[in-house]
């Protein structure tokens, strides 16, 4: 079973996000870049399947050179090889262009299953998995909390958490699975893992290597245009409820929710 995991590098979720003076991007000076948390579930799941069924796990990242660190993290966890798609023309690509570049890199590979995170915790679009699946003409299974590969490796049974229920879905392989929290507990890279990762193959590819034209990607090809970024609206300062006892405070809160906010 050969598995591909696509990963994105994003600002750590503890980061403050500040809008840059251009009004169109964020300040990245103090940002700590990490592997997208949802992608960690993809790496872990791929490794568990490989441990059971054999095969190879390939990690593909897209972005500038710094993304290499996240690919190395996945290699240190146990993935076998990495590919970084790095081309200045890709900067500011939207999800359609990103999916196109990833699909181009994957097309020539031998694969049975692809994992992506259900969304990047930066732009929160949740589009790349679907785009990739469309361009590869294979099924997508999104927001997955459990995956079982059939013994013959030809199909997969997944649990998909939707509002208030879980759908159990069977799909042929290859397919794209987008991962949701609950799928597994990602392992930490061990020290020997980190040492080994340094020697694992990590290949860099440009658009030309993928047979893509710069006009198909980047800012110019965006189908969704960002007009401006703003900080979220400030909430008005609320009131701290005073009272002699917890009971008094609780009663006052209920009065306010009832009479002022009219919510109960």
């Amino acid at each position: 079973m050969n598995i591909i995991v696509c990963l994105k590098q994003v600002p750590d979720t503890d980061s403050q996000i500040k809008v840059a003076p251009d009004g169109n991007s964020i300040v990245t000076d103090d940002v700590k870049w990490v592997m997208n948390p949802y992608d960690e579930f993809g790496v872990e799941e791929a490794l568990q399947i490989k441990e059971k069924m054999g095969g190879e796990v390939t990690v593909i990242g897209l972005g500038p050179k710094r993304v290499t660190e996240s690919i190395r993290t996945a290699l240190a966890m146990g993935a076998d090889k990495g590919i970084l798609i790095n081309d200045p023309a890709l900067e500011n690509s939207d999800a359609l262009a990103t999916g196109r570049a990833l699909a181009a890199a994957i097309k020539g590979l031998d694969y049975d299953l692809i994992f992506t995170g259900q969304r990047g915790v930066d732009d929160d679009m949740g589009l790349v998995g679907a785009t990739l699946a469309e361009f590869l003409d294979i099924p997508q299974l999104s927001i997955i909390v459990k995956a079982e590969i059939s013994e013959d490796g030809k199909s997969v049974k997944v649990n998909r958490a939707v509002e208030g229920q879980t759908l159990v879905i069977e799909s042929s392989l290859p397919a794209v699975i987008t991962t949701q929290k609950g799928l597994n507990e990602p392992r930490y890279a061990s020290l020997p893992g980190i040492m080994k990762a340094k020697k694992k193959p990590l290949e860099e590819k440009t658009l030309a290597d993928l047979g893509l034209d710069p006009s198909q990607v980047g800012e110019g090809a965006r189908k969704l245009k960002i007009m401006e970024l703003t900080p979220p609206p400030q909430r008005e300062t609320g009131k701290i409820i005073e009272g002699e006892t917890p009971e008094e405070k609780a009663a006052e809160l209920v009065r306010l929710l009832h009479e002022e906010a009219k919510l109960i």
Partner: peptide
């Protein structure tokens, strides 16, 4: 922007090659 709607919108956007704004 439900689990179903987000999944559907994402794939439709790719199939129709048009822009999509999520959530």
């Amino acid at each position: 922007a439900s689990v179903e709607g987000k999944d559907l919108a994402a794939r439709l956007s790719a199939r129709l090659e048009t822009g999509m704004a999520q959530d």
